[in-house]
Design a protein around this nucleic acid. Structure first.
Lengths: 138, 138
DNA sequence: CCTTGACCTTCCAGTGACTAGAACCCCTAT
DNA sequence: ATAGGGGTTCTAGTCACTGGAAGGTCAAGG
């Protein structure tokens, strides 16, 4: 099976698959013409990677998860640990984004959004010390 | 004022300030020795940028916001529009992360996390078609 | 005067996970 | 023979920095 079909079956673009090979996540065979030759097991791995990436695992996480997946004597605790660490990072990101969201939505709600220059959004972004006066004093 | 002091006052590392100059967000003067010479107005802009970046605005957003900030004849609607678009992106990111979080926390809760290989996390990552049998059939 | 150390400068490379594009090869069908 | 739709490699770009190397500048101390 060539790269395009493998990609369609796994739901990944060909470019991504080449990248996954480059970083050593998969090792498809090669035909005599140099084309990558994907086995069912390769497509299966690609599907695994696609799902892991969709859950936000990094490539390095994927590498670990894939090796655990293929290790029949794995301990589920090892898998769980990877997942828990990732969950913690997701929580951190969500918290950071929600802080931004809270601040920003408040500011947006306060902004008239008309043709006048008064704007609480800019006022909040501006540091507390006054902007440099570009006015001449009479 | 040299770059380090400007950075301390604005709460930004010197490297970041050099980068901001490189992309044209600020244009500090230069001393005769080639050192950047920061005015109060530069430090003020840097503070603005730091806050905008902390709210997750991209550099390009910052460029727009800064020009609006300095334009006394701006319309607050223009500021609001930038902020609202950004808010929408934040919401999208949060939603995507929460989907991951929901899926993953469920899986983690289901995983025994012991020394046995059974693992619902890996089971969920694996595509539905069965893994390649590496067993010899008798 | 010389050195030390803390600054400053520029330039280059790397981050993560792709993605776009160029230049070229291969295979099948008309 | 050629047109098209595959495939291949390689380079460079994304985003917003960050680290490091190589070297210039300055004030203080010996």
């Amino acid at each position: 099976m060539n790269i395009k079909e493998a990609g369609q079956r796994a739901g990944l673009p060909a470019k991504t698959i080449r990248y996954y090979e480059e970083v050593g996540l998969i090792r498809p065979l090669r035909d005599s013409n140099g084309y990558r030759a994907f086995r069912e097991s390769d497509v299966h791995k690609l599907g695994f990677l696609g799902r892991a990436r969709a859950l936000g695992f990094t490539i390095e996480d994927c590498r670990v998860l894939l090796s655990l997946y293929e290790d029949q004597s794995r301990a589920s605790a090892d898998v769980k640990e990877v997942a828990q660490k990732h969950l913690a990072q997701i929580s951190d990101k969500i918290a950071a984004l929600q802080t931004m969201q809270d601040t920003l939505s408040h500011l947006v709600a306060c902004c008239h959004g008309d043709d006048r220059p008064d704007c609480p959004i800019l006022a909040d972004l501006a540091p507390p010390n006054p902007p440099p006066p570009k006015l001449r004093k009479p």
